[in-house]
């Protein structure tokens, strides 16, 4: 199949993906190189000796994941760009996937991009945690993407525009996007009041009229809570913005 489509099959990947136990210990390189070709920079670049010495230049790499510490030196050295580093200990909900990215412009740290799978299909929104571009990397920068943990073995590339949700607006006034909302829910802000305070959604001039219901729906979908039992944010006066001068003037007249 790989030969026909260029996409590694599950069978192929079995060989490359380390055990759950190893992944739980910290960052590790995942080498998705399945064809015998004359090439060995992964072995020569690894200072740890984690990649077994090639007997034949055509060998496919064998990595000792107990030695590999996920330093990612091999990532920018692999001419086939077939290596990523995955760190499943990054946070409770997210894994870090470090990918080689040889395109301009480079993404900005802190921005959101679209995570792509091995077929280039968009699969999630990913946060750019770090962009490493040293001289030693010789124009193969490494971009660290925070992705949902269950997609750590799916996301293998990115595209800059955040087609997932960077422009799907939940709150028009404060410009909270669906992706940002989901991110907050993932972080444990599980009621509308918490989301309102941390993100300002609902505090804008429309007083939450456009976003309140949408946030509650998303909370219900994400947490399994029932809309009818969910606490609702406070409805504060004034219902419509009113000028200080208007209020002051009115009081004067009496």
């Amino acid at each position: 199949m790989l030969e026909k489509t260029g996409v590694a099959t599950e069978q192929d990947l079995q060989k490359a993906i380390p055990s759950k136990e190893r992944l739980a210990k910290g960052p590790v390189a995942i080498i998705e190189c399945f064809q015998r070709i004359p090439c060995n920079p992964c072995y020569t670049s690894c200072k740890k000796g984690a990649i077994k010495e090639f007997e034949d230049i055509n060998d496919t790499p064998e990595i000792n994941v107990e030695i590999c510490n996920g330093c990612a030196v091999c990532v920018s050295n692999c001419p086939g760009l077939s290596i990523v580093v995955v760190d499943e200990t990054y946070s409770e909900q997210e894994a870090l996937v470090k990918i080689p990215y040889e395109f301009l412009p480079l993404p900005e740290e802190g921005s959101f991009v679209t995570g792509l799978d091995r077929e280039g299909k968009a699969v999630c929104r990913a946060k750019v945690v770090k962009v490493l571009n040293t001289k030693a990397m010789d124009r193969t920068p490494i971009v660290s993407l925070a992705v949902p943990k269950d997609l750590s073995m799916t996301v293998r590339f990115m595209k800059l525009n955040d087609i997932y949700s960077d422009n799907t607006f939940v709150c028009r006034c404060e410009e909270l996007t669906m992706g940002e909302l989901r991110e907050l829910i993932r972080k444990g802000f599980n009621t509308i009041d918490e989301i309102k305070r941390i993100s300002r959604a609902g505090m804008g001039p429309c007083q939450g009229r456009t976003c309140r219901q949408l946030i509650m729906q998303e909370l219900a979908a994400a947490t399994g809570a029932k809309m009818s039992e969910m606490p609702i944010s406070t409805f504060r006066p004034p219902v419509k913005p009113i000028k200080l001068g208007t209020i002051a003037g009115g009081a004067d007249h009496e």
Binding site: P237, P238, P241, L244, G245, I247
Partner: peptide
């Protein structure tokens, strides 16, 4: 809870001390 007394007194004093703010709109009180 919020009261209209506060809103009025605050608006009045603010407009006297910082007159430029008379044209800004209140969106919430709490």
């Amino acid at each position: 809870t919020s009261s209209w007394h506060f809103l009025e007194e605050m608006a009045k004093d603010c407009c006297e001390l910082l007159p430029l703010l008379k044209d800004i709109r209140v969106v919430r009180q709490w």
